[in-house]
Design a protein around this nucleic acid. Structure first.
Length: 271
DNA sequence: AATTTACTCAACCGCGATCTG
DNA sequence: CCAGATCGCGGTTGAGTAAAT
């Protein structure tokens, strides 16, 4: 007996999102907030699966998404957090303000794992590979059929961790004083999408084709509405902050060695 | 210039966890 | 407690694009 699909897929749109769909989704969330993804598409007038809406919001439309290139400091932190946490992308993303788990996962698979391999380091274990026996582990492309038979499953018992807190950086300002983007880009104030109760001042940036574009020209700062934001400051001092995060984790791991204690380490991520 | 190959990343899929009645 | 609904995560795919031939 197979599990029923999350929604009827008859007549639903798939593939890349259009600007109109983005606008509908953002406006709906502006009015009603996140959540209730299953019923959201219908209420928002979208012919999309709820999962698709959630993914689009989480990975692309959220106001706190940082869309610039991953900095060397962020790369370094990703590598080090991966060595501690493994493929727990959402946990790793939770400590990189403005970055999504999908983005980090993609970046790892396309850049970082290859770089580690080229440096003679196993990207899975972060241990040095024997020089005379190089292992070629280039992102296996086989389909998952039966999870329980995965060899790594036995090596690494699954731990169910509390959800990480995402840093919000919803106070965004452009580097230029103008609201107009360059090269025909259009900056749409968040206030057109998001209610002002959070005092957002950022922009969505569209190009001539009404596609959202990378906003590497944006400076996004942590929003001071959470108790945890002291851990990370603005992006400007990201080097120190990222280093601080890693050191905190390292300290926790030094005092916690077995599995149960790893759980408390994970709990600490919620602080 | 045309074709092939390699790469990137947004989006999808399936599953386990959690929630709810 | 149970079963179904929903959520969230990690693995994977494939369309679009760049680089190589």
């Amino acid at each position: 007996m197979g599990r029923a699909p999350c929604c009827s897929k008859v007549g639903l749109h798939r593939g890349p999102w259009t600007p109109r769909e983005d606008t509908l989704l953002v406006k709906y969330i502006q009015a009603h907030g996140e959540g209730h993804w299953r019923s959201l598409p219908k209420k928002a007038g979208l012919l999309r699966c709820g999962k698709s809406c959630r993914l689009r919001w989480m990975n692309y439309l959220r106001p706190d998404i940082k869309r610039g290139n991953i900095t060397p400091d962020e790369e370094d932190l990703i590598i080090r957090l991966h060595s501690l946490l493994g493929n727990r992308w959402s946990l790793i993303a939770g400590r990189l303000p403005g970055r999504t788990d999908n983005e980090i996962k993609n970046y790892w698979n396309t850049h970082l794992s290859k770089r580690l391999l080229s440096q003679g380091t196993d990207p899975n274990t972060h241990k040095k590979l024997p020089p005379d026996n190089p292992v070629v582990v280039l992102v296996p492309k086989k389909k998952r059929k039966n999870k329980s038979t995965k060899p790594t499953e036995q090596e690494k018992p699954k731990i169910h961790l509390p959800k990480p807190i995402r840093f919000t950086s919803s106070v965004c300002t452009t580097k230029s004083s103008s609201q107009g983007g360059e090269n025909g880009q259009v900056l749409v104030p968040w206030s057109e999408y998001i209610s002002d109760d959070e005092n957002r001042t950022g922009f969505l940036c569209y190009n001539d084709d009404h596609d959202l574009i990378n906003s590497s020209d944006f400076e996004c700062q942590s929003h001071h509405d959470h108790d945890h934001d002291h851990v990370l400051g603005a992006e400007g001092d990201s080097n120190d902050s990222l280093e601080k995060i890693y050191e905190e984790y390292l300290q926790l791991l030094k005092t916690n060695e077995d599995q149960v204690q790893l759980d408390s380490f994970a709990e600490s991520l919620l602080i």
